[in-house]
Every structure is written in structure tokens, then in C-alpha cells.
Design a protein around this nucleic acid. Structure first.
Lengths: 223, 223
DNA sequence: GGGGAGCGTTACAATTTGATACAAAACTGT
DNA sequence: ACAGTTTTGTATCAAATTGTAACGCTCCCC
């Protein structure tokens, strides 16, 4: 699932299909830093992330950037708007994807189950985007950062008994642009969590969540 | 279309179907202030707004509220997430809606064209939510308010030659909760636009856009 | 090994936004 | 028309966030 910072867990959507569906799809590799598509490109394929992590971004004319979502394994990306992509997509780490013809989305391409699965993924993305809106609109900087670390570590981290551990594939700048903050503010919030003993760092990317419950509380706001 | 504050215009989706499709749907009236559904309700119907305006809201535990979207004629509302509604929906003014069975979304309900139209609407909503994310994440308070007035007046306002005019069905508090601001900040921004001669007010709800081009520039940011 | 580029952190100043308080205006029901 | 309620606008002050700048660190290239 996309990183969306909703409080409730959402089930990871099953990877679309097995052997017989794989014949209808095409596995592609996307090396770190390479773009899968750009905003404005005509949508010819829909993709499911199999391994790795991608980044979906949109720019404003004046250079300001918004990270729309991070795509983790299982996520469907590339839904069209008026037939075109509405974001840039590039790989944060080496990534493999499964590509489906756009027709699979539009009329099923002779595979009703695939069609249904894509529709469900689209509905899930609406929900995910709404969660993102909630976070951007309602939460303070500290709450946003706590939410981000809480969700990403719960969803993709390693469970080490009382602790959780997660290696972030994205930079502070990516996190800032995802949360609508500056890198400095993200850095300060992370430092505050570290000084409060809620998390511990091993380098900038490796996060150890020492107090998962406290992190969850901080992500929700006091009142 | 939902109010989404994207720069580019999107075509208003055609009202779903005509006579023969109307037989498969049910027209319902929703008086001002009444709720169509609540967050968590099981989704049994998908709706299209025919006349009037609805408000989609979500609350956080601590009472903070986010207005997810305003639904204008043509908009499809009520897409499920895990089978349930993920927002409250109530009417800002007396509203009429056309209700479709949920089956129409899931497998077409024997009407492939309706199914396609609903899927297109879902894709449009993903795009709309992304625009909302862009605005919340990238724009300043003044830019958000300018964007809001710009988009809503261009999309739903009356064209009076050099001017545009729009009656807002929502309160300052609704606008604030949509834009992630406080009512005071919205009020300040509106006053600043009025003092700059960009807009003029007739009461709190009736907005006359005196300088549409200037409003569009202010909504985009200087640099 | 030295030097530079990029990223992350920290401190401090500047700005924006929010909180509070209160006044004015609009709306409500009697 | 009236009092009471809600909404909106304004001003002041406090708080949160950003901008700026400096510094340290790592990695890579020379």
C-alpha cells in the first residue's frame, strides 16, 4: 500500500494474479534513479510494484515539488487522468514492476478478475489520497513526522519484539516534500523524537523505533 | 468536478446516461443540512449530484475536521474503501442526487457503459485528490484562498464579460477546513484580495472577481 | 590524501499562521 | 421588530514554521 498515514491498517492487496495472469503482463526492471514515466506522458501501461520502491512527484512551475506517494511492493501505479500520467515516477532503489496493458483497466482486456482488481486498487488509492489530505490539512509538523515514521515502520519495518526497525529508502528532502514541510523541519522533528528516546538512528536512513506506542500517540495529537 | 484547485481545466463529466439508464437509477432529494451517509456506513449506493452542493468531511478523534471535497452537479460521490464510506456527506443546500446500485461499480450490473463511466469517475477523483494534496502541501495561506476562489469561480461562476461572479454555498469555516487553515486566516486573505481590488464582496457569500487574471497569478505563487 | 559535492543537522532570525478576544453583521424564531 | 444565536471580520499577541547560514559528515573523484 502507498504510504498514507491513516490510523487504521489496510490489508496489503494481493499481487495481481499468478501464472496464467503473468502471461498477460510484462516484468520490467527500473534501476535506481531512472524514470518510469513523466507527467503528461500518455498512459499505455499500468504497473504493479513487485520489489523496490518508487517515488511519485509533481512539480509546480516555480520549482516547488510535492511527493504524491511512495510506491511499495503490491502498489498499483500509473492510473491515468484524461489518458495521461499526472505525476513523474522514478525509482528510489532498484525496482521491478509488472506492466499491464491499459486496456486491462478500461474494459478488462478479456480478464474480468484483473479488471476488478484494478478497480479495487483505484478505490484504494482514492482512500489513500484522502488520508494524505487529512494529514497535510490537520497535523502539525511534529505529528506529520511521527505519523510518517509510525506508518512506514509498521507497514514495512522489521518487528524485533519490543522494537521495530526500518531502513528508509527516501531522503529527508523526499520526506519533507511528502509531508509539506522543509528538510530542516523534518530534521528537527526527527532529532526531537531521538532526544525523547522514542526512536534511535543508525545513520540517517536506518530508524529504530524504541517506543512504538509513544510514536503512535505522538502521531495523533494531544487533545 | 470536485473543487480541486488544479491549474488546468478539466472537462465536466457528462451526466451518466439518459432515459434508458435513468430506469436503473433512483433520484433522491437531500434537504440542506441532512446527511446522505456517515463515515463507516456500508456502501450500498453510489451517487451522482444532479443539482445542489454536498460537503464531504472527515473528523479526527480530537475534533479537528477536514473537508475532503465539495460535490457539485456531475460529481460522483460515495466510492467505497473496504466496502465502507470513508467520509461524512451532507448537503450545503437542497440537493438532488441519482443513486446507482453498488453492483454497478463492482461488476457493471449488466451495463458496461455505466461501469466504464464510474471507473472514469474514480480515476478523475484520484486526480482531484492529488490536486488537493498539491495545494495543501505547496501553497501558502494567501495562495490557497486565491486558488480556491479562482477555481470555484471559473468552474461554477457566472461569466459577466470582464468579471466573474459566484455565490459560495459554503461557510468560511468550510473553506478553512478544506484548505487546512483557520477561519481567521481565510478572512484575512479574503480581505486582502478585496483591498487589493482583485475581488469585491456582496455579503459574505457573493464574490465578484474583478481581476480574474490577477487572481490566477496570485494562486500560483510569485517565483 | 585533498578537495568538492551533496545531504543532514543545528542555531538563530524572520515570517507566517494560529489563538484569543471582541465587535459587527447576518440569520433565527418568536 | 426584537432578542438571542451564529457567522464573519478585525486587532493584538503568542506560537509554530520557515529561511538563512554555518558546520559536520560521507562519498566520490581526482
Amino acid at each position: 500500500m502507498y504510504i498514507t498515514l491513516s490510523a487504521e491498517e489496510r490489508p496489503m492487496p494481493a499481487v495481481l494474479g499468478g501464472d496464467e495472469r503473468a502471461r498477460k503482463s510484462l516484468t520490467t526492471r527500473l534501476p535506481q534513479g531512472k524514470y518510469l514515466y513523466r507527467e503528461g506522458d500518455v498512459v499505455e501501461r499500468i504497473y504493479q510494484v513487485m520489489t523496490g520502491v518508487v517515488r511519485l512527484t509533481r512539480m509546480l512551475e516555480n520549482g516547488r515539488r510535492q511527493v504524491i506517494a511512495f510506491g511499495y511492493p503490491g502498489d498499483i501505479i500509473g492510473f491515468p487522468a484524461n489518458g495521461c500520467h499526472h505525476a513523474d515516477c522514478d525509482a528510489l532503489v532498484d525496482t521491478t514492476l509488472r506492466a499491464y496493458r491499459r486496456a486491462a483497466l478500461d474494459h478488462g482486456d478479456g480478464d474480468p478478475e484483473l479488471h476488478t482488481a484494478l478497480l479495487q486498487a483505484a478505490l484504494g488509492e482514492i482512500s489513500a489520497m484522502q488520508d494524505h489530505v487529512m494529514m497535510l490539512g490537520l497535523k502539525s509538523a511534529a505529528e506529520k513526522v511521527a505519523s510518517f515514521l509510525d506508518v512506514i515502520s509498521r507497514r514495512y519495518g522489521e518487528d524485533l519484539g519490543a522494537y521495530r526497525q526500518i531502513e528508509l529508502p527516501m531522503s529527508r528532502s523526499d520526506i519533507a516534500d511528502f509531508l509539506g514541510l522543509t528538510t530542516e523541519t523534518v530534521s528537527r522533528a526527527v532529532t526531537a523524537l531521538r532526544k525523547a528516546g522514542v526512536i534511535s538512528l543508525d545513520g540517517a536512513q536506518m530508524i529504530i523505533v524504541l517506543k512504538p506506542d509513544t510514536l503512535a500517540e505522538l502521531s495523533q495529537g494531544e487533545d
